[in-house]
Each structure stands twice: as structure tokens, then as C-alpha cells.
């Protein structure tokens, strides 16, 4: 049913740290690798070795610049489904293929019911859904629903593929509905925010802003400037000093 649950028991989602993301695309690659064999398999690639490459990806990393002069910053910006509370992609679905789980808030597509009308992708402000031309159905991030509850994996591995592979710990996974969870604390501490809050979708995923840049040496505990080395007139350095100052 495409009506949204009024509440969900947990709100599973991601916290993405724009300060530490280095834009290495490892999350993108591991997402594709896992999901092309998982719940939404296959993540079709069209013409993969040709000149017009196209394909389905659930996670994409943009790079932005903002600010000018010494305040200019480069920010790598991973973007995937935000598993919104007000997920209009679900309510617009005419067939019931799109749904939001009342247990954990994950937004999924039942690919056997999808007619490929694409309306859900129009309803998403973030561009999280991608159409599989080959299968004729819509696909999207599942928050690795087939990993996070998977008892065949070691407990440490029961995390989304993008999170577990991130080499700079820029991605965190957890229950954002629980104020005491690690991810909720991280969001509170770092001033995590919603993308496009004015759209009213109440995304579950949060973004952590880049930390303020430290512009002076003192700010990182270094000396303000370098002082000449003082000698005590002894040893080799003392001799060199004496000879050269003569």
C-alpha cells in the first residue's frame, strides 16, 4: 500500500560526513558490486564499453566548490536515497510497487509490481531513483536491506556496503530515530542537517558540514613563525657559527 506509515519503529539511515569524504568512489563501487547481485539485481549497465555508457547506480559522488579566496572549499558530496519520512515517491506510485516499511523506515520497490511509469523519480527532489531501461522498472538504494539483517554475515559486516567500505569513515549507519544512538549523537555534535528541508520530505539521512577551516598555524598548535637556531658556542655547530660570523 502506498500510503505512508504514520510512525516507524526505527529510522534506519546514513550520516555522511562532508568534512572527511575524499571522493575516492569506493562507496559507489562497493554499492554497485553488492547490489548488482542483491535485492535489486541486476543493476543494468547499457553499452558499458561503448561511447554512450549508461547504467543504474544507487550512490553517486558529486564534487562541488563553494566560497571564494582563502575560504574556498572543495567538497565531495555522496548522494543516495535519503529514506524520507514524507516519501512522496511512495504516495505517487499508482501500483503499490513503492513502499516504506513501518518497521525501519526503509523505502523499497517491489520490482514485480512496478510498471515503469517513472512518476516516483519525478517526485523525488534528490534524484535518488534510477530507471532500469533493460528491465523496464525503477530501482533505488535499499539501504542494503539484504546485508543489514543478513545472519549469514558476521555481525560486523551487517552494514550497508557503502558504509563498510569507506576508507575515511565518512559514512555512518544507524537508527536516527533513537536520540541516544551513535549516529544521532554525531548529528547533534556536528550540526548535521537535512538536504532541501524546504521541500518538506523530512529525509532520514543527514549530512555533516565541513568543519571550519583553520587559517593560522596557531589554530593547529604550530608556532606562529620559525626562529633561528641558537647555539651555545660548542661542538661542530658552534665552530661553524664562529667561522661564518667572523
Amino acid at each position: 500500500m502506498t500510503t505512508l506509515p504514520t510512525t516507524t519503529t526505527t529510522k534506519l539511515g546514513l550520516v555522511i560526513d562532508l568534512d572527511t569524504c575524499v571522493g575516492c568512489q569506493a562507496c559507489v563501487t562497493n554499492c554497485k558490486e553488492w547490489n548488482t547481485g542483491g535485492h535489486s539485481a541486476p543493476l543494468t549497465d547499457l553499452n558499458p564499453y561503448g561511447d554512450k555508457v549508461d547504467g543504474v547506480w544507487f550512490n553517486r559522488v558529486h564534487t562541488f566548490e563553494y566560497g571564494l579566496g582563502e575560504n574556498a572549499r572543495t567538497v565531495n558530496f555522496p548522494k543516495s536515497c535519503l529514506h524520507c519520512e514524507n516519501a512522496a515517491c511512495v504516495t505517487v506510485c499508482p501500483t503499490g510497487a513503492s513502499y516504506k516499511r513501518s518497521s525501519d523506515g526503509i523505502v523499497l520497490v517491489d520490482h514485480d509490481k512496478c510498471i515503469g511509469c517513472k512518476l516516483c523519480s519525478w517526485a523525488c527532489p534528490y534524484g535518488a531513483r534510477e530507471f532500469d531501461e533493460d528491465e523496464g522498472v525503477m530501482k533505488k538504494c535499499t539501504l542494503c536491506v539484504d546485508r543489514i539483517y543478513n545472519e549469514n554475515l558476521d555481525e560486523v559486516d551487517r552494514q550497508p556496503a557503502c558504509v563498510i567500505t569507506c576508507p575515511s569513515k565518512a559514512r555512518h549507519f544507524g537508527d536516527l530515530g533513537d536520540p541516544d544512538s551513535d549516529v544521532s549523537k554525531l548529528v547533534a555534535e556536528r550540526g548535521g542537517y537535512d538536504l532541501m528541508p524546504e521541500q518538506g520530505y523530512k529525509p532520514t539521512n543527514k549530512y555533516l558540514p565541513p568543519r571550519p577551516r583553520k587559517l593560522t598555524g596557531a589554530a593547529i598548535g604550530a608556532q606562529e613563525s620559525l626562529q633561528p637556531v641558537k647555539t651555545n658556542g660548542k661542538g661542530f655547530l658552534g665552530w661553524v657559527d664562529k667561522v661564518l660570523t667572523r
Binding site: L18, G23, V28, V53, W57, R60, V61, H62, T63, F64, E65, Y66, G67, L68, N71, R73, T74, V75, F77, K79, Y193, D194, L195, M196, P197, E198, Y207, P209, P210
Partner: peptide
Amino acid sequence: TATGLRGGEVRSVDWPH
């Protein structure tokens, strides 16, 4: 608002594809 990056113009310098 799309990126949450405040303090000036946001310029797209690299696409994911």
C-alpha cells in the same frame, strides 16, 4: 539548500558520471 553548503555560490566542478 540542495547541498546544505552555505556561505557563497556553490559550483559544480565534477559530475559522478
